[in-house]
Nucleic acid binder design. Sequence first.
DNA 1: GGAGATTACATGCACGTGCACTTAGTGCGC
DNA 2: GCGCACTAAGTGCACGTGCATGTAATCTCC
Lengths: 144, 144
Amino acid sequence: METESLLERNLVEQWRELVARKTRVWNALELELDRQHGLSASEFEVLDTLSEYDCAEPPRVQELAAHVPITQSALSRMIGRLETQNLVTRTLCSSDRRGVFVVLTDEGMQRLAEARPTHRAVLAAELTATATESSAQAPTPVVL
Amino acid sequence: METESLLERNLVEQWRELVARKTRVWNALELELDRQHGLSASEFEVLDTLSEYDCAEPPRVQELAAHVPITQSALSRMIGRLETQNLVTRTLCSSDRRGVFVVLTDEGMQRLAEARPTHRAVLAAELTATATESSAQAPTPVVL
DNA sequence: GGAGATTACATGCACGTGCACTTAGTGCGC
DNA sequence: GCGCACTAAGTGCACGTGCATGTAATCTCC
């Protein structure tokens, strides 16, 4: 017992590396997007994803939830928050009146356009900064 | 304007892939570890990290926080929860009485030993399942 | 050695999240 | 047409988290 194969060790290492990278970039995004544009990382992700849809055929809540790493219920509330900020609007779907379309407002598109450079810059800066091999002893602070 | 270089597109794609992977594996861990062993993914991560220290030289809270993707304050509370479950104990450091050593109890080591196979299995299953190229339109459900 | 700055950990508070459930609407079988 | 299973989205609740702050101990410099 207590034998842990190198393959497993490697798997764990890979996993920790993945989490560390994600956390590092995420925290950086959270910080910069909030400071400069008053948006959380999640909110940006939703707006950015939303912008990829044709305005004529906006996504429904479900559809949107499938492309963003949060639950449908969390998304529902976030849409509420974004709506009070006039960044998105809800439109109910006439063919299926349970459905709700989510559309970017002009203001939302503008805020997104402003925030995008920041987002891309952080990504460029943090995503390339790989700590590929530095092992488990003291890799990167992970949390600032 | 509205020009987004392929390089940037690629960066964003890479980022979303990273988040999607992390979220997928994390959720799977959360589910299995809780169902089978009553541990959250974060808790397991802390216990597992803790186990890598020599019992004679346990880490302090700070030290531990540096190796786990949560804040020191969050860790402080988690240690409290783990302590009430008798999985870890706090020992105050005599040389610097501000410091607090965190040590695995026997029960903690046992629970960890039980949970480890589950953890490694989920990693093996989910981490290899790469969705490397499938693009933004409908990659992986991300959230179940 | 005493004051003030600094560090280590804990905690009050507000907030976003997930789970379970509710409400509203659709479609199917009869 | 009616009841019933099913789906879409929203909500009550509890909980874990981060930020800012509090408390205690240590260090520094005079």
